[in-house]
């Protein structure tokens, strides 16, 4: 989903919302989705991430892939803030349907450059209705 805004220099700033709906590890979708978002962010795209459905499993804490022989890319979500991705939405209903709570997710933070590098929580928990609005905004 992409919207275009005009910034004060008159150039186009594209706003992207990456909707993540797949579980990690079983397929490559999650890892590739994260990489694509980070590459976009590195190229100054305005990137937001939304996690819904099985996508919420991507942010589960304590993931340890040492016994299945794949890369533990869950560590990479910790770099989102460094890439200036500071809007990360997680849908509460998707968590509840899976027997998970907010406390099950990694305590991700970002350092706010405009606030003396204060560490702030990265994840914003939203309801289904709120996510609907967020998706619409990026449309």
């Amino acid at each position: 989903m992409v919207t275009e805004d005009t910034n004060h220099e008159g150039g186009q700033v594209k706003k992207f919302l990456y909707l993540n709906r797949r579980a990690p590890h079983g397929t490559n979708y999650a890892q590739e989705g994260l990489e694509v978002a980070l590459i976009g962010a590195a190229f100054d795209q305005d990137v937001a991430m939304a996690y819904t459905d099985d996508g919420v499993f991507q942010l589960k804490k304590d993931q340890d892939t040492s016994d299945i022989g794949t890369k533990n890319f869950s560590a990479t979500y910790g770099a989102l803030g460094d890439y200036d991705v500071t809007r990360v939405y997680v849908e509460l209903e998707s968590l509840a349907r899976r027997g998970l709570t907010k406390e099950d997710l990694m305590p991700l933070v970002y350092e706010d450059e405009d606030d003396d590098w204060e560490e702030k929580p990265l994840i914003r928990f939203v309801s289904e209705a709120e996510l609907r609005d967020i998706i619409e905004e990026h449309e």
């Binding site: 590195a42 890369k71 560590a75 990479t76 910790g78 460094d82």
Partner: peptide
């Protein structure tokens, strides 16, 4: 720490 090489 992050399993990623950061962009410039």
């Amino acid at each position: 720490e992050y399993q990623i090489a950061p962009a410039v």
